[in-house]
């Protein structure tokens, strides 16, 4: 679930308030985003992708609270890590044409996700 809005980074653009599909954020009294309905978070990580300043952190724990430390996340390079790995930048889409998933689909025919993964050892 969403655990952090880093107030040093947040610029109060309200993009997360707008794009969260579960309506988890509100715009706070100081103009910065606040986590208003955490238990509605569906742990989809998409708010991080849209945040132009890498101010948000979603814990992979979908049901339990996860205590996080902002400085530690920055030190571990985890704030904005999903965005960087996707190739998005400042909330804008990018890296789409570099997606190598086709290699996996061709290799493994894993496009058929509903089937058990082939048992053969890969290379």
């Amino acid at each position: 679930m969403i655990e952090l809005v880093n107030s040093d980074r947040c610029i109060g653009c309200d993009i997360c308030v707008k794009v969260c599909p579960r309506d988890v954020f509100d715009s706070g009294d100081d103009g910065l985003a606040v986590i208003a309905r955490k238990s509605d978070c569906q742990t989809c990580f998409l708010c991080e992708l849209y945040c132009p300043v890498d101010a948000l952190y979603v814990s992979p724990h979908a049901e339990q609270d996860d205590e996080v430390d902002s400085e530690q996340l920055i030190a571990q390079n985890l704030l904005g890590s999903y965005t960087r790995n996707m190739g998005w930048s400042r909330g804008k889409m990018g890296g789409t044409d570099k997606d190598p998933t086709r290699q996996l689909r061709i290799l493994n025919r894993v496009g058929r996700e509903e089937q058990p993964t082939p048992q053969r050892q890969l290379l």
Binding site: F45, S59, P60, L78, S81, Y82, N85, M86, K98, D99, P100, T101, Q103, L104, L107, Q121, L122, L123
Partner: peptide, 25 residues
């Protein structure tokens, strides 16, 4: 424990949210 590093990179690059839980845990 299967596949090779090149293939793992395809997964990592193409779908970073597959690895995100592990990085963060």
């Amino acid at each position: 424990n299967r596949g090779n590093p090149i293939e793992h990179d395809w997964l990592r690059q193409g779908q970073p949210n597959c690895f995100l839980p592990f990085e963060r845990i």
